[in-house]
């Protein structure tokens, strides 16, 4: 049949066109825009970005958030995944509850934590009734950068650990139980079983989870904005400010390109560090 040769291409065409129109084109436009520095030349927008008062602090905040949130999330998700594995009954229910935050938008999640942590929020009310504090106490302003940072970390962990958990649970279920039993028989302790058998065999899932979460963590914005406003500047937040408030799309584009480059670099690092030797694959 003459159609059969073209059928596969026909079937992937809608997705390809969609990606081209809504992803590839804007991507190219953004890159072009970022290098359109007018009289300042090719790197003009990047120079303005680097000279921005908030640039260094937003870069530092973004990296500190990624380096704090992602490792904590990985450890938490691995722990939660292993606990689920041990459960005999009600596993689906617990997994379902644990993944509820997946369905909550990051702005909404930020607002939930704002409601808990703001001056007259649930936390303070609770602490006041316990007699720990005398009245409304501020945790989230520029004078309390430490608690503000912790609040953002907590909100981010609450909001986005479920993605990692889902990937890890799927990965754990792919490991036949005989491997753990063999480890038991041959005398591995729980810790040895984890480090020598489970984690090495979970490597492909860990890699996917790390890449996905790290890329998303570099794009952290809405939850930070909801909880701290601009008291804790992050890269995407600055891009937003340049776009919305300063109406300077070109510098915003430079920020966007920088974030993309950082994400790509992180992905490359993970792919290299967690590379599975092809002959060692199951």
């Amino acid at each position: 049949m003459p159609t059969s040769r073209w059928l596969p291409y026909l079937l992937i065409a809608p997705a390809s066109v969609f990606l081209a129109v809504f992803f590839a084109v804007p991507l190219v436009q953004t890159i072009v825009l970022s290098f359109d520095g007018g009289p300042a030349g090719l790197w003009g927008n990047y120079q303005r970005m680097l000279g921005d008062l908030n640039f260094n602090v937003s870069l530092r905040n973004t990296f500190m958030l990624v380096l704090t949130v992602v490792p904590l999330q990985m450890m938490l998700a691995i722990g939660m995944g292993l606990m689920l594995q041990k459960m005999q009954r009600g596993r689906e229910v617990v997994l379902w509850i644990w993944t509820i935050p997946l369905g909550v938008s990051d702005l909404a999640a930020g607002l939930v934590w704002l409601a808990i942590l703001q001056n007259t929020g649930y936390l303070n009310t609770f602490l006041f009734h316990l007699g720990v504090i005398d009245g409304p106490t501020a945790w989230l302003n520029s004078e309390t950068p430490m608690t503000l940072f912790i609040a953002v970390v907590v909100a981010e962990i609450w909001r986005s650990t479920a993605v990692v958990l889902v990937i890890i649970v799927a990965g754990l279920q792919l490991i036949p139980k005989e491997f753990g039993e063999a480890a038991d028989i041959f005398g591995a302790s729980a810790w040895q079983k984890l480090t020598r058998v489970t984690l090495p065999m979970l490597k492909p899932s860990l890699q996917s989870a790390l890449i996905l979460r790290t890329v998303l963590a570099f794009e952290v914005f809405a939850a930070v904005y909801a909880i701290g406003g601009r008291n804790i500047p992050v890269l995407v937040g600055e891009a937003y400010v340049w776009q919305r408030e300063n109406q300077n799309y070109s510098v915003a584009a430079a920020y966007a390109v920088l974030i993309m480059v950082i994400s790509l670099a992180a992905t490359a690092v993970y792919l290299r560090l967690l590379r599975q030797k092809p002959e060692a694959q199951a």
């Binding site: 036949p176 005989e178 039993e181 480890a183 028989i185 005398g187 065999m201 199951a282």
Partner: peptide, 29 residues
């Protein structure tokens, strides 16, 4: 627990660790 019983076992699907060399597999116990 299994490890303290002084036994070894061969499984139906072998359960040979894919991420370890043959030497390390045999040396595991």
């Amino acid at each position: 627990p299994p490890a303290q019983r002084g036994l070894a076992m061969v499984f139906q699907n072998y359960a040979v660790f894919p991420h370890l060399t043959v030497f390390e597999n045999v040396a595991f116990g």
